[in-house]
Amino acid sequence: MNIHHLELFYHVAKCRGVSAAARQMPYGIQQPAISAQILQLEDFLGKTLFHRRPFALTSEGETLFTFIEPFFAKLPGMAERLRGGADNSLRISCPEIVQRDYLPALIGAVRNRVPDFHFTLESGRIEEIETHLRSGRIDLGLATSAGSKDNGIHGHELLKMPLVLLVPEIGGPATAAEILDLDRIDLPLVTLPHGEPTVVAFQQELQRRKIEWFPQLELASLDLVARFVAAGYGAGLVLDIPGAPRPPGLRVLPLEGFPEIRFYALTHGNRSPMVELFIAEAERVIAGLG
């Protein structure tokens, strides 16, 4: 049997489906490629290994998975053993803003403590990070979040950041109240995508105050929000991030009474010593940004 086909079958059986396996595989492979190679394995065996809709292993699939599961499940442990008994690696996922502003300093701090530390990194929004943590695809997520939920994800709070508005320095409002006290707000609101914690928290507070002001432009990053505000497209909702430079040509308006957004280290299940060390260094680095 083709060993790669067996590996793909292992992930399909573990993830309970081809599409879930494509999302959670530890390396990139498209769903059609997985399906095609699983079909080749079934053709070679002359047996159907699982039912597609709904997913369920056949008796032959159960037999094969029981046989191969110990080998593929124990591979990470063998890698740890070959490294000398300590796994000094992490699989990390975080949004672009964390990669740019915080991650280089965090990685440097961890490498000062563990010189042979190595890591993999992928971009992800909070929903993707939580999915990948539950599937075991990553060890650690770094993101703004609503915190711990009843979904197995644990949030270790690292930082609180206030919400602020960005407006042009010349000709823009002097305070947030000048905008929020209007009977009808015509100024376009520029934000991150609607599901982001910053936008959700801001809209919930507006609703509590019975104020209607909805995003007109939803952009992929806080940098883009600032650039569009500087170009005159409206007022931008951003986070007041410690240590981050203030954008030139823009005025920062504090939002008094609005909730702070919390930045978390997100994990699932028991934390490894490497995760614990990374979180400790993250706390130390972030404390130095104030």
Rank of each mutant, 00 (worst) to 15 (best):
Y264P: 01
S123C: 05
G234I: 09
T58L: 12
N88T: 15
A143C: 14
S221N: 06
A231W: 08
S59G: 05
H4Q: 14
C15D: 14
G77N: 06
V252S: 06
E281S: 03
L239K: 04
G77T: 01
F9T: 06
G249K: 08
R113Q: 15
L163E: 12
F67W: 03
P32M: 13
A146Y: 13
V285Q: 08
I279N: 02
S148C: 11
G77I: 00
A146L: 15
T66V: 02
L142Q: 03
F117S: 05
S59H: 10
A220R: 06
V252M: 10
G108A: 15
H268A: 09
L82P: 00
L166C: 05
R227G: 00
A56V: 07
R81A: 15
I107F: 14
E157P: 01
T120R: 12
L165N: 04
Q216A: 09
L133W: 10
L187F: 01
L224K: 15
R91C: 03
G84T: 05
F55M: 04
A79Q: 15
A86G: 00
G17R: 06
L133R: 05
G236W: 02
V110C: 12
L239N: 06
V252H: 05
L159C: 09
L253E: 07
E157M: 11
K14F: 06
L159A: 03
G155Q: 06
Y233D: 04
I261S: 03
L187G: 00
I170P: 01
Q31D: 11
L222G: 13
G141H: 07
I153A: 02
P248Q: 14
F202Q: 05
L45I: 04
V229R: 01
N270Y: 02
D186L: 13
A13C: 04
L165P: 02
H51I: 12
R16H: 10
R209K: 12
Y102C: 02
G152Q: 07
R184S: 12
E212I: 08
G152D: 09
D240R: 15
V199K: 10
T191A: 07
Y233H: 10
A176F: 02
A287L: 02
L163R: 09
I129Q: 10
P193H: 15
L189T: 13
H4V: 12
M78F: 14
E276R: 00
I29D: 00
L75I: 15
M78H: 15
G136K: 11
G290T: 10
R208K: 13
G147Y: 03
I129W: 08
L49R: 08
V225F: 01
I126H: 11
G108L: 08
I138H: 07
A226L: 06
L250P: 09
V200D: 08
D43P: 00
N151F: 03
A230G: 07
A235T: 00
G28W: 13
I261F: 02
T48Q: 11
R111T: 11
V114H: 03
P242K: 13
A109V: 02
R83Y: 01
D183S: 13
L255Y: 01
L224F: 10
A56N: 11
Y233T: 02
A282F: 03
E128N: 13
Q30R: 14
P248Y: 08
F55Y: 12
G155W: 05
Q99S: 10
V12M: 05
I97A: 06
T120I: 03
L163G: 07
A22Q: 03
F72E: 05
P193T: 09
L106G: 04
